[in-house]
Amino acid sequence: MANFLDKHREKVVMFNQQYRGKRKLKTTKIDVPENLFTRCPFCQDLILTEAVEANDYVCPYCGKYFQISGRKRLAMLVDPGSFIEYDKKLKTSNPLNFPGYEEKIHKVSLETGENEAFISGKATIDRMNVMIGVLDSHFLMGSMGSVVGEKVTRLIEASITERLPLVIVCASGGARMQEGIFSLMQMAKTAAALARHNDARLFYLSVITHPTTGGVSASFAMLGDIIVAEKDALIGFAGKRVIAQTIKEDLPDHFQTADFLLEKGMLDIVIERKELKQTIVKLLQFHRQEEDHDR
């Protein structure tokens, strides 16, 4: 991997010099396919998109993690071609008749190509069957309204019915404001389903990624039998801005990071993105063995 990137790094540097040089001259236009390069939002370096993908969407230069869509996250974790999507036909309505909400959903749907902020279904991970769901932070901050809450609940129920382990990858700003009290009630609904899941003695692995706050962290994200968080993820209940505004406390730099929560005893494991899949596989294997003993 290192060699591969080193090789490309040279090309990128060369390209940068070439491209920037030509642009200043404004004489010839180079025919560069769109999306060939990606700019790192952290260090601003230009990177071959291919190299970003091959590196699990981690910047090869500065090591920071790109926020990725639900589909990309899913593709990183499940065996290729194994995913069967559930509840695709659930769509958002406007329960409170909140001004501008429908338009907003419509716009975000077009931008992301998704109906809602949660993608769920059945898949295999290293040939083990799982129920898996992924929150998409690109869709209204991965916020939880009626549809997300319903899909999460149905996934938990499918996991109970089929007696399969449950994996949920979280990335959410919390409950969705525009659906008001209905969003708040999704916290109760998902927690209720997890109480049944717990009674059924099934494994629930919660994977927390950047950012996970509010009503999602205060419901299913924090209820995993095992909670694994991705390095550098922001995790908390109240938003940093809210805390700063209402309390006027000085907050340490690493406040609400995965490492901060690990230190405080709130997480089992904090892990690099590139090690996430193998860790999930290992945890699924541990729990598969347990099930076999039962039979």
Binding site: A195, R196, T213, A218, S219, M222, I235, F237, M266
Partner: peptide
């Protein structure tokens, strides 16, 4: 919403209570 509350797991406490009550 504060440093101490977050340090001691406000989200975990609420989540666990919600599940327990069922």
């Amino acid at each position: 919403p504060g440093f101490e509350a977050e340090s001691r797991g406000q989200a975990e406490a609420i989540a666990s209570l919600l599940r327990l009550l069922f």
